[in-house]
Write a protein that binds this DNA or RNA. Structure first.
Lengths: 232, 232
DNA sequence: CGTTCAATTGATCAGCGTCAAACTAGGTGG
DNA sequence: CCACCTAGTTTGACGCTGATCAATTGAACG
Protein backbone atom coordinates (compact mmCIF):
# COMPACT_ATOMS: atom_id res chain seq x y z
CA UNK A 1 0.00 0.00 0.00
CA UNK A 2 1.78 3.15 -1.22
CA UNK A 3 1.79 6.12 1.15
CA UNK A 4 0.27 8.37 -1.49
CA UNK A 5 -2.96 6.40 -1.34
CA UNK A 6 -2.87 6.17 2.39
CA UNK A 7 -3.08 9.92 2.86
CA UNK A 8 -6.01 10.06 0.50
CA UNK A 9 -7.85 7.30 2.28
CA UNK A 10 -7.06 8.79 5.66
CA UNK A 11 -8.86 11.97 4.65
CA UNK A 12 -12.12 10.13 3.96
CA UNK A 13 -14.83 11.06 6.43
CA UNK A 14 -15.08 7.48 7.54
CA UNK A 15 -11.39 7.19 8.52
CA UNK A 16 -10.67 10.81 9.33
CA UNK A 17 -11.01 10.84 13.10
CA UNK A 18 -9.93 7.36 14.07
CA UNK A 19 -6.76 6.66 16.05
CA UNK A 20 -3.54 6.30 14.07
CA UNK A 21 -2.88 2.83 15.37
CA UNK A 22 -6.29 1.63 14.28
CA UNK A 23 -5.97 3.20 10.87
CA UNK A 24 -2.65 1.45 10.44
CA UNK A 25 -4.22 -1.80 11.53
CA UNK A 26 -6.86 -1.55 8.85
CA UNK A 27 -4.36 -0.50 6.21
CA UNK A 28 -2.07 -3.40 6.96
CA UNK A 29 -4.49 -5.91 5.51
CA UNK A 30 -5.75 -3.60 2.79
CA UNK A 31 -4.72 -3.55 -0.79
CA UNK A 32 -5.23 -1.29 -3.75
CA UNK A 33 -5.99 -2.65 -7.15
CA UNK A 34 -6.37 -1.20 -10.61
CA UNK A 35 -9.09 -2.61 -12.77
CA UNK A 36 -9.91 -2.16 -16.43
CA UNK A 37 -13.53 -1.34 -17.37
CA UNK A 38 -16.24 -3.98 -17.18
CA UNK A 39 -14.62 -6.09 -14.52
CA UNK A 40 -16.81 -7.84 -11.99
CA UNK A 41 -15.68 -6.92 -8.49
CA UNK A 42 -18.47 -8.48 -6.51
CA UNK A 43 -21.20 -11.00 -7.13
CA UNK A 44 -24.39 -10.81 -5.12
CA UNK A 45 -24.81 -13.71 -2.76
CA UNK A 46 -21.11 -14.03 -2.00
CA UNK A 47 -19.96 -13.49 1.56
CA UNK A 48 -18.81 -9.93 2.18
CA UNK A 49 -15.12 -10.52 2.76
CA UNK A 50 -14.12 -6.99 1.81
CA UNK A 51 -15.26 -3.46 2.23
CA UNK A 52 -14.51 -1.43 -0.88
CA UNK A 53 -13.51 2.16 -1.52
CA UNK A 54 -13.47 3.68 -5.00
CA UNK A 55 -10.45 5.92 -5.43
CA UNK A 56 -10.78 6.68 -9.12
CA UNK A 57 -13.01 5.70 -12.01
CA UNK A 58 -16.56 4.52 -11.33
CA UNK A 59 -18.29 1.39 -10.17
CA UNK A 60 -21.79 0.20 -10.96
CA UNK A 61 -23.86 -1.53 -8.31
CA UNK A 62 -26.43 -3.76 -9.92
CA UNK A 63 -28.78 -6.55 -9.04
CA UNK A 64 -30.16 -9.52 -10.89
CA UNK A 65 -33.09 -11.85 -10.58
CA UNK A 66 -34.54 -14.47 -12.88
CA UNK A 67 -32.42 -13.38 -15.83
CA UNK A 68 -33.19 -9.69 -15.41
CA UNK A 69 -30.71 -7.05 -14.36
CA UNK A 70 -31.04 -3.53 -13.02
CA UNK A 71 -28.60 -0.78 -12.15
CA UNK A 72 -29.02 0.17 -8.50
CA UNK A 73 -26.52 3.02 -8.38
CA UNK A 74 -23.17 4.23 -9.62
CA UNK A 75 -20.44 4.85 -7.08
CA UNK A 76 -17.89 7.57 -7.75
CA UNK A 77 -14.71 8.63 -5.93
CA UNK A 78 -14.24 8.86 -3.16
CA UNK A 79 -16.77 6.68 -1.49
CA UNK A 80 -17.26 3.33 0.12
CA UNK A 81 -19.65 0.63 -0.91
CA UNK A 82 -20.96 -2.61 0.50
CA UNK A 83 -20.57 -1.27 4.02
CA UNK A 84 -23.72 -2.84 5.45
CA UNK A 85 -22.79 -6.36 4.40
CA UNK A 86 -19.36 -5.90 5.97
CA UNK A 87 -20.83 -4.71 9.25
CA UNK A 88 -23.37 -7.50 9.41
CA UNK A 89 -20.88 -10.12 8.20
CA UNK A 90 -23.51 -11.07 5.67
CA UNK A 91 -23.78 -11.76 1.97
CA UNK A 92 -23.64 -9.07 -0.69
CA UNK A 93 -27.09 -8.02 -1.85
CA UNK A 94 -25.75 -6.35 -4.96
CA UNK A 95 -23.10 -7.06 -7.54
CA UNK A 96 -20.47 -4.55 -8.59
CA UNK A 97 -18.49 -3.98 -11.76
CA UNK A 98 -16.19 -1.26 -12.95
CA UNK A 99 -17.57 1.04 -15.60
CA UNK A 100 -14.27 2.72 -16.41
CA UNK A 101 -10.67 2.04 -15.53
CA UNK A 102 -10.85 2.24 -11.76
CA UNK A 103 -8.74 2.10 -8.67
CA UNK A 104 -10.33 0.35 -5.74
CA UNK A 105 -9.20 -0.25 -2.18
CA UNK A 106 -10.27 -3.47 -0.54
CA UNK A 107 -10.35 -3.73 3.23
CA UNK A 108 -10.89 -7.13 4.83
CA UNK A 109 -14.30 -7.07 6.52
CA UNK A 110 -13.05 -8.80 9.62
CA UNK A 111 -10.49 -6.02 10.18
CA UNK A 112 -13.15 -3.37 9.72
CA UNK A 113 -15.41 -5.04 12.25
CA UNK A 114 -12.59 -5.51 14.74
CA UNK A 115 -11.57 -1.87 14.58
CA UNK A 116 -15.18 -0.84 14.73
CA UNK A 117 -15.39 -2.51 18.11
CA UNK A 118 -12.26 -0.80 19.37
CA UNK A 119 -12.37 2.70 17.94
CA UNK A 120 -15.34 4.78 18.87
CA UNK A 121 -14.58 7.59 16.46
CA UNK A 122 -14.54 5.09 13.66
CA UNK A 123 -17.79 3.56 14.87
CA UNK A 124 -19.41 6.98 14.83
CA UNK A 125 -18.23 7.59 11.28
CA UNK A 126 -19.45 4.21 10.10
CA UNK A 127 -22.90 4.85 11.52
CA UNK A 128 -23.09 8.23 9.88
CA UNK A 129 -22.06 6.77 6.57
CA UNK A 130 -24.53 3.93 6.92
CA UNK A 131 -27.37 6.27 7.84
CA UNK A 132 -26.50 8.33 4.79
CA UNK A 133 -26.65 5.25 2.56
CA UNK A 134 -29.93 4.19 4.10
CA UNK A 135 -31.47 7.55 3.42
CA UNK A 136 -30.20 7.50 -0.15
CA UNK A 137 -31.96 4.20 -0.81
CA UNK A 138 -35.16 5.42 0.80
CA UNK A 139 -35.11 8.50 -1.41
CA UNK A 140 -34.57 6.32 -4.43
CA UNK A 141 -37.43 4.07 -3.44
CA UNK A 142 -39.72 7.05 -2.97
CA UNK A 143 -38.80 8.36 -6.38
CA UNK A 144 -39.54 5.00 -8.00
CA UNK A 145 -42.96 4.68 -6.42
CA UNK A 146 -44.15 8.26 -6.55
CA UNK A 147 -42.90 9.55 -9.89
CA UNK A 148 -43.46 8.65 -13.52
CA UNK A 149 -40.47 7.93 -15.69
CA UNK A 150 -40.63 11.39 -17.24
CA UNK A 151 -40.59 12.99 -13.82
CA UNK A 152 -37.71 10.79 -12.75
CA UNK A 153 -35.70 11.84 -15.77
CA UNK A 154 -36.48 15.53 -15.26
CA UNK A 155 -35.38 15.36 -11.64
CA UNK A 156 -32.30 13.37 -12.47
CA UNK A 157 -31.22 16.09 -14.87
CA UNK A 158 -31.75 18.75 -12.23
CA UNK A 159 -29.77 16.76 -9.68
CA UNK A 160 -26.96 16.18 -12.13
CA UNK A 161 -26.96 19.88 -12.93
CA UNK A 162 -26.73 20.78 -9.25
CA UNK A 163 -23.95 18.26 -8.76
CA UNK A 164 -21.77 19.94 -11.37
CA UNK A 165 -21.95 23.71 -11.29
CA UNK A 166 -25.60 24.56 -11.75
CA UNK A 167 -24.92 25.85 -15.26
CA UNK A 168 -27.33 25.42 -18.14
CA UNK A 169 -24.93 23.06 -19.91
CA UNK A 170 -23.42 19.97 -18.40
CA UNK A 171 -22.50 16.37 -19.14
CA UNK A 172 -24.17 13.08 -18.40
CA UNK A 173 -21.68 10.98 -16.53
CA UNK A 174 -22.96 7.55 -17.50
CA UNK A 175 -24.14 6.06 -20.72
CA UNK A 176 -27.82 6.36 -21.46
CA UNK A 177 -28.41 2.65 -21.31
CA UNK A 178 -27.26 2.59 -17.68
CA UNK A 179 -29.11 5.77 -16.90
CA UNK A 180 -32.30 4.21 -18.19
CA UNK A 181 -31.84 1.18 -15.99
CA UNK A 182 -31.03 3.32 -12.98
CA UNK A 183 -34.21 5.32 -13.52
CA UNK A 184 -36.22 2.15 -13.88
CA UNK A 185 -36.96 2.25 -17.60
CA UNK A 186 -35.79 0.81 -20.89
CA UNK A 187 -33.27 2.55 -23.17
CA UNK A 188 -35.99 3.05 -25.78
CA UNK A 189 -38.25 4.68 -23.29
CA UNK A 190 -35.48 6.96 -22.08
CA UNK A 191 -34.88 8.03 -25.62
CA UNK A 192 -38.52 9.00 -25.96
CA UNK A 193 -38.60 10.66 -22.58
CA UNK A 194 -35.70 12.86 -23.65
CA UNK A 195 -37.70 13.94 -26.66
CA UNK A 196 -40.70 14.58 -24.47
CA UNK A 197 -38.62 17.04 -22.47
CA UNK A 198 -37.88 19.17 -25.52
CA UNK A 199 -40.94 21.41 -24.94
CA UNK A 200 -39.45 22.09 -21.51
CA UNK A 201 -36.24 23.43 -23.00
CA UNK A 202 -34.15 20.28 -22.65
CA UNK A 203 -31.74 19.27 -25.39
CA UNK A 204 -29.46 16.27 -25.12
CA UNK A 205 -26.87 15.53 -27.78
CA UNK A 206 -24.62 12.64 -27.01
CA UNK A 207 -23.70 13.18 -23.38
CA UNK A 208 -24.19 16.94 -23.44
CA UNK A 209 -27.28 18.32 -21.74
CA UNK A 210 -28.62 21.80 -22.25
CA UNK A 211 -31.39 23.21 -20.11
CA UNK A 212 -32.73 26.29 -21.86
CA UNK A 213 -35.82 26.91 -19.77
CA UNK A 214 -34.84 26.14 -16.21
CA UNK A 215 -38.14 27.31 -14.72
CA UNK A 216 -40.23 25.18 -17.03
CA UNK A 217 -38.23 22.07 -16.23
CA UNK A 218 -38.40 22.77 -12.51
CA UNK A 219 -42.14 23.23 -12.75
CA UNK A 220 -42.46 19.82 -14.36
CA UNK A 221 -39.97 18.07 -12.10
CA UNK A 222 -41.17 19.57 -8.82
CA UNK A 223 -37.97 18.61 -7.01
CA UNK A 224 -38.05 18.28 -3.24
CA UNK A 225 -35.14 17.97 -0.83
CA UNK A 226 -36.95 14.96 0.65
CA UNK A 227 -36.10 13.05 -2.50
CA UNK A 228 -33.59 15.04 -4.48
CA UNK A 229 -31.15 16.61 -2.05
CA UNK A 230 -28.41 14.09 -1.24
CA UNK A 231 -27.41 16.09 1.83
CA UNK A 232 -30.90 16.46 3.26
CA UNK B 1 -42.49 5.42 32.35
CA UNK B 2 -43.91 2.31 34.05
CA UNK B 3 -41.42 -0.42 34.94
CA UNK B 4 -43.39 -3.03 33.02
CA UNK B 5 -42.56 -1.31 29.75
CA UNK B 6 -39.00 -0.73 30.77
CA UNK B 7 -38.21 -4.40 31.04
CA UNK B 8 -39.72 -5.01 27.66
CA UNK B 9 -37.73 -2.23 26.06
CA UNK B 10 -34.57 -3.32 27.80
CA UNK B 11 -34.84 -6.69 26.13
CA UNK B 12 -34.81 -5.20 22.64
CA UNK B 13 -31.64 -6.08 20.75
CA UNK B 14 -30.78 -2.44 20.43
CA UNK B 15 -30.82 -1.79 24.19
CA UNK B 16 -29.96 -5.24 25.44
CA UNK B 17 -26.22 -4.93 26.07
CA UNK B 18 -25.83 -1.30 27.01
CA UNK B 19 -24.79 -0.17 30.49
CA UNK B 20 -27.56 0.22 33.07
CA UNK B 21 -26.74 3.86 33.67
CA UNK B 22 -27.00 4.68 30.00
CA UNK B 23 -30.24 2.82 29.63
CA UNK B 24 -31.65 4.77 32.55
CA UNK B 25 -30.44 7.99 30.98
CA UNK B 26 -32.32 7.26 27.81
CA UNK B 27 -35.44 6.15 29.65
CA UNK B 28 -35.51 9.27 31.77
CA UNK B 29 -36.48 11.45 28.82
CA UNK B 30 -38.60 8.80 27.15
CA UNK B 31 -42.31 8.46 27.25
CA UNK B 32 -44.85 5.91 26.23
CA UNK B 33 -48.03 6.88 24.53
CA UNK B 34 -51.16 5.08 23.45
CA UNK B 35 -52.65 6.08 20.16
CA UNK B 36 -55.94 5.23 18.49
CA UNK B 37 -55.87 4.07 14.85
CA UNK B 38 -55.17 6.49 12.04
CA UNK B 39 -53.17 8.95 14.08
CA UNK B 40 -50.29 10.78 12.43
CA UNK B 41 -47.15 10.26 14.47
CA UNK B 42 -44.63 11.82 12.14
CA UNK B 43 -44.72 14.05 9.10
CA UNK B 44 -41.95 13.82 6.54
CA UNK B 45 -39.78 16.90 6.45
CA UNK B 46 -40.02 17.55 10.18
CA UNK B 47 -36.85 17.43 12.22
CA UNK B 48 -36.29 14.04 13.82
CA UNK B 49 -36.70 14.95 17.47
CA UNK B 50 -37.61 11.43 18.53
CA UNK B 51 -36.68 7.89 17.86
CA UNK B 52 -39.72 5.62 17.99
CA UNK B 53 -40.33 2.08 19.11
CA UNK B 54 -43.58 0.25 18.44
CA UNK B 55 -44.60 -1.81 21.45
CA UNK B 56 -48.01 -2.92 20.29
CA UNK B 57 -50.30 -2.41 17.33
CA UNK B 58 -48.83 -1.42 13.98
CA UNK B 59 -47.50 1.68 12.31
CA UNK B 60 -47.45 2.54 8.63
CA UNK B 61 -44.50 4.35 7.14
CA UNK B 62 -45.55 6.22 4.05
CA UNK B 63 -44.28 8.91 1.74
CA UNK B 64 -45.94 11.59 -0.33
CA UNK B 65 -45.06 13.73 -3.31
CA UNK B 66 -47.08 15.99 -5.50
CA UNK B 67 -50.40 14.81 -4.11
CA UNK B 68 -49.53 11.14 -4.39
CA UNK B 69 -48.97 8.78 -1.50
CA UNK B 70 -47.33 5.38 -1.14
CA UNK B 71 -46.91 2.91 1.68
CA UNK B 72 -43.22 2.28 2.27
CA UNK B 73 -43.55 -0.35 4.99
CA UNK B 74 -45.52 -1.45 8.01
CA UNK B 75 -43.72 -1.62 11.32
CA UNK B 76 -44.82 -4.20 13.87
CA UNK B 77 -43.81 -4.86 17.47
CA UNK B 78 -41.23 -4.81 18.63
CA UNK B 79 -39.12 -2.65 16.41
CA UNK B 80 -37.69 0.79 16.03
CA UNK B 81 -38.28 3.20 13.23
CA UNK B 82 -36.80 6.46 12.01
CA UNK B 83 -33.43 5.49 13.40
CA UNK B 84 -31.35 6.96 10.58
CA UNK B 85 -32.86 10.43 10.87
CA UNK B 86 -32.20 10.37 14.61
CA UNK B 87 -28.57 9.39 14.13
CA UNK B 88 -27.96 12.00 11.47
CA UNK B 89 -29.96 14.66 13.31
CA UNK B 90 -31.80 15.17 10.06
CA UNK B 91 -35.35 15.49 8.81
CA UNK B 92 -37.75 12.57 8.54
CA UNK B 93 -37.91 11.17 5.03
CA UNK B 94 -41.12 9.31 5.70
CA UNK B 95 -44.34 9.98 7.54
CA UNK B 96 -45.84 7.57 10.05
CA UNK B 97 -49.36 6.84 11.22
CA UNK B 98 -50.91 4.19 13.40
CA UNK B 99 -52.95 1.56 11.62
CA UNK B 100 -54.45 0.06 14.76
CA UNK B 101 -54.59 1.08 18.36
CA UNK B 102 -50.88 1.22 19.16
CA UNK B 103 -48.45 1.81 21.95
CA UNK B 104 -45.34 3.71 20.98
CA UNK B 105 -42.24 4.73 22.90
CA UNK B 106 -40.63 7.99 21.98
CA UNK B 107 -37.00 8.60 22.83
CA UNK B 108 -35.57 12.10 22.37
CA UNK B 109 -33.07 11.94 19.52
CA UNK B 110 -30.51 14.05 21.33
CA UNK B 111 -30.43 11.53 24.19
CA UNK B 112 -29.99 8.67 21.76
CA UNK B 113 -27.09 10.41 20.06
CA UNK B 114 -25.45 11.31 23.35
CA UNK B 115 -25.61 7.77 24.66
CA UNK B 116 -24.45 6.49 21.31
CA UNK B 117 -21.26 8.48 21.80
CA UNK B 118 -20.74 7.12 25.29
CA UNK B 119 -21.82 3.51 25.18
CA UNK B 120 -20.00 1.32 22.75
CA UNK B 121 -22.31 -1.65 23.14
CA UNK B 122 -25.21 0.57 22.24
CA UNK B 123 -23.33 1.97 19.26
CA UNK B 124 -22.70 -1.54 18.03
CA UNK B 125 -26.37 -2.42 18.33
CA UNK B 126 -27.45 0.74 16.54
CA UNK B 127 -25.13 0.00 13.64
CA UNK B 128 -26.41 -3.54 13.36
CA UNK B 129 -29.99 -2.34 13.39
CA UNK B 130 -29.23 0.33 10.81
CA UNK B 131 -27.44 -2.11 8.54
CA UNK B 132 -30.45 -4.38 8.82
CA UNK B 133 -32.78 -1.55 7.81
CA UNK B 134 -30.53 -0.60 4.94
CA UNK B 135 -30.56 -4.10 3.60
CA UNK B 136 -34.32 -4.31 3.93
CA UNK B 137 -34.75 -1.21 1.77
CA UNK B 138 -32.29 -2.50 -0.79
CA UNK B 139 -34.21 -5.76 -1.02
CA UNK B 140 -37.42 -3.85 -1.45
CA UNK B 141 -35.89 -1.73 -4.17
CA UNK B 142 -34.63 -4.80 -5.99
CA UNK B 143 -38.06 -6.34 -5.83
CA UNK B 144 -39.68 -3.23 -7.26
CA UNK B 145 -37.29 -3.01 -10.17
CA UNK B 146 -36.85 -6.66 -11.03
CA UNK B 147 -40.30 -8.16 -10.54
CA UNK B 148 -43.70 -7.64 -12.09
CA UNK B 149 -46.62 -6.89 -9.84
CA UNK B 150 -47.83 -10.48 -10.06
CA UNK B 151 -44.42 -11.76 -9.01
CA UNK B 152 -44.30 -9.28 -6.17
CA UNK B 153 -47.65 -10.46 -4.89
CA UNK B 154 -46.71 -14.12 -5.18
CA UNK B 155 -43.52 -13.55 -3.22
CA UNK B 156 -45.26 -11.44 -0.64
CA UNK B 157 -47.66 -14.28 0.04
CA UNK B 158 -44.79 -16.73 0.45
CA UNK B 159 -42.98 -14.36 2.81
CA UNK B 160 -46.11 -13.83 4.84
CA UNK B 161 -46.61 -17.57 4.98
CA UNK B 162 -43.06 -18.10 6.20
CA UNK B 163 -43.51 -15.35 8.78
CA UNK B 164 -46.45 -17.11 10.37
CA UNK B 165 -46.06 -20.87 10.56
CA UNK B 166 -45.51 -22.01 7.02
CA UNK B 167 -48.98 -23.56 6.90
CA UNK B 168 -51.15 -23.58 3.80
CA UNK B 169 -53.66 -21.23 5.45
CA UNK B 170 -52.81 -17.90 7.01
CA UNK B 171 -54.03 -14.35 7.38
CA UNK B 172 -53.10 -11.12 5.66
CA UNK B 173 -52.07 -8.68 8.36
CA UNK B 174 -52.93 -5.46 6.55
CA UNK B 175 -55.85 -4.37 4.48
CA UNK B 176 -55.60 -4.99 0.78
CA UNK B 177 -55.56 -1.33 -0.07
CA UNK B 178 -52.36 -0.85 1.92
CA UNK B 179 -50.88 -4.07 0.62
CA UNK B 180 -51.42 -2.87 -2.92
CA UNK B 181 -49.64 0.39 -2.20
CA UNK B 182 -46.80 -1.40 -0.48
CA UNK B 183 -46.37 -3.67 -3.48
CA UNK B 184 -46.42 -0.69 -5.81
CA UNK B 185 -49.81 -1.19 -7.41
CA UNK B 186 -53.40 0.01 -7.22
CA UNK B 187 -56.11 -1.77 -5.21
CA UNK B 188 -57.90 -2.67 -8.44
CA UNK B 189 -54.80 -4.20 -9.88
CA UNK B 190 -54.14 -6.17 -6.70
CA UNK B 191 -57.65 -7.53 -6.92
CA UNK B 192 -56.96 -8.76 -10.43
CA UNK B 193 -53.55 -10.11 -9.50
CA UNK B 194 -55.19 -12.19 -6.78
CA UNK B 195 -57.48 -13.69 -9.38
CA UNK B 196 -54.54 -14.32 -11.66
CA UNK B 197 -52.99 -16.45 -8.92
CA UNK B 198 -55.95 -18.78 -8.80
CA UNK B 199 -54.44 -21.17 -11.39
CA UNK B 200 -51.48 -21.44 -9.02
CA UNK B 201 -53.66 -22.67 -6.20
CA UNK B 202 -54.09 -19.37 -4.38
CA UNK B 203 -57.42 -18.44 -2.85
CA UNK B 204 -57.96 -15.28 -0.86
CA UNK B 205 -61.25 -14.61 0.89
CA UNK B 206 -61.31 -11.51 3.00
CA UNK B 207 -58.02 -11.65 4.86
CA UNK B 208 -57.67 -15.42 4.71
CA UNK B 209 -55.14 -16.85 2.30
CA UNK B 210 -55.03 -20.45 1.20
CA UNK B 211 -52.16 -21.85 -0.80
CA UNK B 212 -53.28 -25.16 -2.26
CA UNK B 213 -50.42 -25.80 -4.66
CA UNK B 214 -47.29 -24.65 -2.86
CA UNK B 215 -44.92 -25.90 -5.56
CA UNK B 216 -46.74 -24.14 -8.36
CA UNK B 217 -46.73 -20.86 -6.51
CA UNK B 218 -43.04 -21.20 -5.67
CA UNK B 219 -42.26 -21.94 -9.28
CA UNK B 220 -43.97 -18.74 -10.31
CA UNK B 221 -42.57 -16.61 -7.51
CA UNK B 222 -39.00 -17.88 -7.70
CA UNK B 223 -38.13 -16.53 -4.25
CA UNK B 224 -34.51 -15.87 -3.41
CA UNK B 225 -32.96 -15.12 -0.02
CA UNK B 226 -31.28 -12.13 -1.67
CA UNK B 227 -34.68 -10.46 -1.83
CA UNK B 228 -37.09 -12.45 0.28
CA UNK B 229 -35.27 -13.61 3.39
CA UNK B 230 -35.36 -10.83 5.99
CA UNK B 231 -32.52 -12.46 7.92
CA UNK B 232 -30.21 -12.94 4.95
C1' DC C 1 -12.79 2.12 -43.84
C1' DG C 2 -15.09 -1.43 -41.82
C1' DT C 3 -16.58 -3.32 -37.38
C1' DT C 4 -19.12 -3.01 -33.39
C1' DC C 5 -22.17 -1.47 -30.12
C1' DA C 6 -25.00 2.20 -28.44
C1' DA C 7 -28.81 5.14 -29.56
C1' DT C 8 -32.78 6.13 -32.01
C1' DT C 9 -37.15 5.37 -34.41
C1' DG C 10 -41.31 3.05 -35.60
C1' DA C 11 -44.92 -0.35 -34.87
C1' DT C 12 -47.17 -3.19 -31.84
C1' DC C 13 -48.74 -4.98 -27.55
C1' DA C 14 -49.15 -5.99 -22.64
C1' DG C 15 -49.50 -4.23 -18.17
C1' DC C 16 -51.32 -1.28 -15.37
C1' DG C 17 -53.88 2.96 -13.95
C1' DT C 18 -58.18 5.44 -14.13
C1' DC C 19 -62.98 5.98 -13.87
C1' DA C 20 -67.43 4.40 -12.79
C1' DA C 21 -70.48 1.25 -10.88
C1' DA C 22 -71.82 -2.76 -8.32
C1' DC C 23 -71.05 -5.57 -4.51
C1' DT C 24 -69.78 -6.94 0.21
C1' DA C 25 -69.03 -6.72 5.09
C1' DG C 26 -68.85 -4.61 9.47
C1' DG C 27 -70.84 -1.45 12.49
C1' DT C 28 -74.79 1.57 14.09
C1' DG C 29 -79.15 2.96 15.38
C1' DG C 30 -84.05 2.49 15.13
C1' DC D 1 -83.32 -8.13 15.01
C1' DC D 2 -83.34 -5.82 10.99
C1' DA D 3 -82.51 -1.99 7.99
C1' DC D 4 -79.20 1.05 6.76
C1' DC D 5 -74.92 3.36 6.33
C1' DT D 6 -70.19 3.54 5.33
C1' DA D 7 -65.93 2.10 3.59
C1' DG D 8 -63.34 -1.37 1.47
C1' DT D 9 -63.35 -4.48 -2.32
C1' DT D 10 -64.42 -6.16 -6.71
C1' DT D 11 -65.71 -5.88 -11.57
C1' DG D 12 -65.96 -3.96 -16.13
C1' DA D 13 -64.63 -0.71 -19.73
C1' DC D 14 -61.29 2.17 -21.45
C1' DG D 15 -56.94 4.55 -22.26
C1' DC D 16 -52.27 5.64 -21.37
C1' DT D 17 -47.61 4.48 -20.13
C1' DG D 18 -44.06 1.95 -21.00
C1' DA D 19 -42.09 -2.74 -22.73
C1' DT D 20 -40.96 -5.46 -26.66
C1' DC D 21 -39.44 -6.42 -31.21
C1' DA D 22 -37.29 -5.05 -35.34
C1' DA D 23 -34.82 -2.08 -38.14
C1' DT D 24 -32.07 1.96 -38.91
C1' DT D 25 -28.92 5.50 -37.76
C1' DG D 26 -24.97 7.12 -35.44
C1' DA D 27 -20.64 7.17 -33.22
C1' DA D 28 -16.32 5.30 -31.46
C1' DC D 29 -12.35 2.59 -32.36
C1' DG D 30 -8.94 -0.25 -34.41
Amino acid sequence: MPDSYKAEIRSLAIFEHMADANFEAIMRGAYVQNFPPQVDLITEGDTADFMHVVISGSVELFATWNGRETTMSVVRPISTFILAATIKDAHYLMSARTLEKSRVIMLPSSDVRRVFDEDHKFARAVVTELAQCYRAVVKNSKELKLRTSLERLANHLLRQQARTNGAANFELTIEKRKLASQLGMTPENLSRAIKALRPYGVTIQGTTVQIAKQDDLVQLAKPTPLIDDPAF
